[in-house]
């Protein structure tokens, strides 16, 4: 049996996974927060339709979501064509595709976590801030965000963990190109299929567990710190 050090291709997969998950979370956190606020505070016709579409990635098989993304972002898809022609950015079969897949799959989880936190805070604090002359944007940053911070942390952690584990949608839109789109789950799957890949797969499984546990611990620490600050007051 080989030693417990990762070889170059394994490191590549780990770094790629971390990069994809980080980009996915960073890009979807702001829109997830805005959408969560909108859903938590406003009533409008068609709200349940918006909620249904939002939660679709949660209940659809990831492969189906991946297929739809492939159709949308493919070089012939309308969004893919626009990005390709106007910005020269290709999504399909690049690491960006993996990030898009992760972001879409994780998005409803993040919205849900943030929305729970927003619903738990007194919305009239926002109204109070308005009566104190604060512009709605200032209210959002000085009252809403600080008071819903734990929801944002929870949403980010949840989204990150889900992104690290993304498989079905990723393989559809990004494929499994070594060094480019072969994230950890894809790496494990490929390793298992190849002869004498068991040891590689096992090492990657251990790394996956460590990253997931690490994310939870970081989240727990942040959450505890926020709670301690609140208790101090």
């Amino acid at each position: 049996m080989q030693g417990f050090w990762l070889d170059a291709s394994e490191w590549q997969a780990v770094c790629l996974s971390l990069r994809v998950a980080t980009v996915a979370v960073l890009c979807s956190l702001p829109p997830a927060t805005l959408l969560a606020w909108w859903l938590a505070r406003k009533d409008f016709p068609g709200k349940s339709a918006v909620e249904t579409v939002l939660n679709l990635p949660l209940v659809l098989p990831p492969v189906v979501t991946g297929y739809l993304l492939l159709v949308l972002f493919g070089t012939q898809g309308w969004l893919g064509r626009v990005l390709d022609q106007w910005l020269g950015v290709r999504i399909v079969f690049t690491w960006r595709g993996a990030a898009v897949a992760s972001a879409v799959i994780a998005f409803p989880l993040m919205v849900r976590a943030i929305r729970v936190a927003l619903a738990g805070m007194d919305a009239r604090l926002e109204q109070t801030a308005l009566t104190l002359g604060a512009h709605p944007i200032r209210v959002f940053f000085t009252v809403t965000l600080p008071l819903a911070r734990h929801g944002l942390i929870a949403g980010a952690i949840l989204g990150f963990a889900r992104s690290i584990g993304e498989f079905g949608a990723t393989i559809m839109i990004a494929g499994s190109i070594p060094g480019q789109t072969r994230t950890m789950p894809l790496y494990i799957f490929t390793a298992i299929e190849s002869p004498d890949g068991i040891a590689r797969a096992q090492r990657m499984v251990i790394v996956s567990i460590l990253i997931a546990a690490g994310a939870l611990i970081v989240g727990e620490i942040l959450e505890r710190r926020a709670r301690r600050q609140r208790a101090m007051r």
């Binding site: 308005l130 009566t131 002359g133 209210v139």
Partner: peptide
């Protein structure tokens, strides 16, 4: 809008 009315409110 509320934030430009300059009316104070104590809830």
């Amino acid at each position: 809008p509320s934030h430009r009315r300059r009316i104070g409110m104590v809830f």
